[in-house]
Design a protein around this nucleic acid. Structure first.
Lengths: 243, 243
DNA sequence: TCACAAACGAGAGCACTGCTCTCGTTGGCG
DNA sequence: CGCCAACGAGAGCAGTGCTCTCGTTTGTGA
């Protein structure tokens, strides 16, 4: 499910002990992920996982120092899983068709979310543990928005937004510049704030759907999402006629 | 904090026992709300509340049949609290200035959310209990969107959206009609779907801010929100020049 | 090759939780 | 004034996260 980031990954465990340790760690996370998907984050119990593995509950602490650590592992995996789904969806369409790329990204993320509601709730719902170690989490957590920004950069000259321009305070302007320092390319500031809005809108819609806020309003979530996505694309300046 | 809906509310408890019961119930919810605000929903413990009240934990079950019932009470209160803040903000501005009304609604809801992050997480984060009894929850939960729709109805003829029109499937069209059956007034369908998008966007932005997703991206959440709000207003067709 | 240390699994135990049951006590209504 | 429902307290059950101890196994350096 989750892919290892390339740098400094130990590919083959040397000793047998290391290998069984890796296998057990993977089995723990797999069972925990299944329990999470079936019963939700609050019902995830270390003892239940240990019981299913035929181990003593105390033995699990050799592999995860705490329940929060196991949850953090699942969180990172979920972020990467969603990121993979997002990337795969975007990469599956013509890279010069920006509208289709945007739609693919949105549908890819939404599809993953409705297929894994509990994991989605884990990463985009209320943050349960005090705070997950930012160092490990921030990179996987930002994959979707980074892809979205990348998309916005490539379509920089093709689409023109029908709204704005809007006044951007200097402080915000500087933060945007700092954020984009990594990428060597620049991006129109107006497009950037629009993209940020669409980003929030996308996850607002998905959260509403997954968390059941549409339940007694709309039956056909697919149609609603499609319509709202068309509006979002129009906000960016992507229409079916362009390209 | 939370207001009683008018119909069939017993205003004055007859007997002393009924009065002390009402007082104790209020004290329980007050302490529970404080614990919730301080430590989050997962840390809310019936026993801790009972301890602080000097009661046996079992006695609390005379007032709330379960922990989930207490949480549901807090959820309903939070919805009404946010609804009050929303209404108060909108009512504070000139009712003919639709742009200001919209901005007041957004800032009112956001202000309440950042002031009560845990309560916001309780109602707009992951749904923790299996499912709260829909009958009691749906009405308070829909106050903001109902106010937003009301706003959209009043500005029906004043603002023209710069995006669209978009194709609305017949099924969705029928659902919108059903939803608006209660209100005797009609609303432009294009405006309705835009409002639904803006609704999702608003809570997407607030959730991102409250849940810390902007933490290592933007420092000035106020400025970001203001800019995105201006974009949202423009999407609806509200600009500072209108009215 | 072998001994030593690190890693490991199992079990008991602690403090805590939600919730149930029982048993006196107290309050209100007929 | 008497009866019954509502109430508060306590014990107890099953479950949780986590710690500590104690044998056992495994890898490694001498």
């Amino acid at each position: 499910m989750a892919s290892d980031p390339a740098p400094s990954a130990p590919p083959a465990p040397r000793t047998a002990r290391q290998r069984v340790r890796a296998e057990l760690t993977a089995e723990i996370t797999a069972i925990a992920r299944r329990h999470l998907a079936e019963k939700g984050p609050s019902e995830l119990s270390l003892r239940a996982v240990a019981r299913e593995m035929g181990m003593a509950s105390s033995a699990l602490y050799r592999y995860f120092p705490s329940r929060d650590a196991l949850l953090t592992r699942l969180i990172i995996d979920a972020y990467n899983d969603m990121g993979d789904a997002c990337d795969a969806a975007v990469d599956a369409v013509d890279e010069r068709d920006h509208l289709s790329q945007f739609q693919a990204l949105a549908h890819g993320v939404r599809g993953w979310a409705v297929a894994h509601p509990q994991e989605y709730a884990l990463i985009y719902g209320s943050p349960v543990p005090g705070y997950a170690a930012p160092t490990d989490t921030v990179d996987p957590a930002s994959r979707v928005i980074r892809r979205l920004i990348l998309l916005a950069i490539t379509m920089n000259e093709d689409a023109t937004a029908p709204i704005g321009p809007v006044a951007i305070p200097e402080m915000l302007e500087r933060q945007i510049a700092t954020l984009l320092d990594d990428e060597s390319v620049t991006i129109d500031r107006q497009r950037f704030v629009i993209i940020a809005s669409v980003w929030a809108q996308l996850f607002g819609m998905i959260s509403f759907e997954v968390f059941g806020r549409y339940d007694e309003m709309f039956d056909d979530a697919d149609a609603l999402f499609a319509v709202q996505l068309e509006l979002a694309a129009a906000t960016i300046g992507l229409t079916s006629s362009t390209d």
